[in-house]
Design a protein around this nucleic acid. Sequence first.
DNA 1: CTGAAAGCGCTTACAG
DNA 2: CTGAAAGCGCTTACAG
Lengths: 340, 340
Amino acid sequence: MSPPKDHRFRRRVTAWDVARAAGVNQSVVSRAFNAGSRVAPETRERLLAIAKELGYAPNALARGLLTGRTRLIGITTVQINSEISSRLLQNLGLGLLSVDLHPLLLPLSPQGVLADEIHRLFTFDVDALVLVSAAISPALVEACTAWGRPVILLNRVAPGHRLHSIRTDDYGGGRLAAQHLLERGAQSLAFVSGPADATNVQARRDGFFAAAEAAGQPPPRIVAGDFAYPSGVVAGRTLLGGPGRPDAVFCANDVMALGLMDVARELGIRIPGDLQVVGFDDITAASFAGYSLTTLRHDLDIVAAETVALLADLQRDGEASLVDRVVSARLIDRRSTHDL
Amino acid sequence: MSPPKDHRFRRRVTAWDVARAAGVNQSVVSRAFNAGSRVAPETRERLLAIAKELGYAPNALARGLLTGRTRLIGITTVQINSEISSRLLQNLGLGLLSVDLHPLLLPLSPQGVLADEIHRLFTFDVDALVLVSAAISPALVEACTAWGRPVILLNRVAPGHRLHSIRTDDYGGGRLAAQHLLERGAQSLAFVSGPADATNVQARRDGFFAAAEAAGQPPPRIVAGDFAYPSGVVAGRTLLGGPGRPDAVFCANDVMALGLMDVARELGIRIPGDLQVVGFDDITAASFAGYSLTTLRHDLDIVAAETVALLADLQRDGEASLVDRVVSARLIDRRSTHDL
DNA sequence: CTGAAAGCGCTTACAG
DNA sequence: CTGAAAGCGCTTACAG
């Protein structure tokens, strides 16, 4: 086989250049860069040195095309800019790099339809897919199934499908919230909800209600929210402005809880004296001195680490038995439920 | 040329399958998928229909290998989990997809050395590189220069090098902060700084000091910070706890300003009556009712849009003249400097 | 307009 | 242990 002709667009340093400089066949260069291959140790060292000098490194695309393993992991996420998603993405990305896997991103606007866009990742031949906090539509499940490679859902579930799932225990977190509030003497509970299509919000609510019922409480009052700060303010005005004010509120996320706390401050309602508040997420602002919000913490490093471990296994073994890992949420006890 | 044999690892649907099903040559299938190529319109339609049925789409890796354009854009960022970085990443990613470019992520831990890791992106043959708020070391500049393809710095500069730069006007923002505070009657200014290696912090400080001097003020007092909330609290205690308390503070970012405001609240110092505060970034929490922080807003959508436009140009033309775009920061006037 | 062929940069059986 | 060759899935001159 002969060395390649000049490239149309640009000239890269290739294995042929190294081979020529070393006076060996190109395939030997390839072997020098593949741990498993038989090469004379001194040959390998010599080739590696020449490669370094020439600035050569194997082209990952060509390798991927040939081996069927691109080491590319498709990651798709709506709202990278939410604190939880972005922290998860950071942890995940760092973990992937540590096992020589590379995140190819497919960010989606909230209005975007994932099932339509997902094919972009397929054309790049990603080895696996990680869906971060994305809504899982039937069309999406179908596309993933037809695709035939591993898919991991983060903080979402799609029961009855061959999709791996790694997630925070939202139900357990909801239970903890109710138990904690009741232990501290709460008499009338309320819940501020999130977007209707987020399956994890439902789980948080269900856990909260179940624990309340188990303690002999009537069903908590529910106020709608959409995860954003202003909806927490609105919920606060609704719950705290009129008669029948609850003495304990569990918000489906922290940001809304902060809005509700700001309303309480405005109305002169003392926290935790007159009102206890619990959030979910443990965002940075929850620990600010001005709030000190008790909340349920996602263990995102665990979620990320488990995801990376699973992906590394899949690279080795091709397939793995279906994973459904639930990471428990931890209650972070702060002043919004707890006087110093 | 004959159709390929069975693949070692898995069988994809290829252009050959479509060609066989349609009774044409594989090259015709390729042309059907390339807008610029001559194919009989009816042939194209027929092929597209068959492709759809078979679930065929051209493999982006093979295409990239051949054309020298992968449509992959390397994006590297330290701390995706900071609100500004993650919002920038979200905007950027969305913009890239809209021009059929794909973000390959290289996240870095704060201790990570970018110059060492950057080669990973080179092996994937990315068409260009975008560095988000990364420290630009000489080694990094050298690696990028040797690589020879376009590099865009976001919110950083590296004067004297062939690296494009698109950034917020930090200096101008610093000036605006000082002017705004002085207009509102501030008598003694202070500045809470950020990490020493962030070039944008220096620019904010320089602008702030320059405008103070231009107004005949003595140089503001400086307190060190590191961008994190606790350092804002410490700065607050330092500045507000002792004698010679300033009546106006400009913080290098919002998070520290919030820490300082929480200290003021604790000490019973009224904002803006006794103390005016200005931040930088306009993070979500700055607009919370409990803070209502006046701040300088990055126009991240503009930064992202300009970046995408530049990358799209580069795809078309190969090279472009060096871009150094400065996007002005906008003062967002809230209650921390302004009674209702 | 379509077909046959070369080639992108690599990996991996297959000989020797 | 090394060389020669085939092939991953595509694009693009080159003929006809």
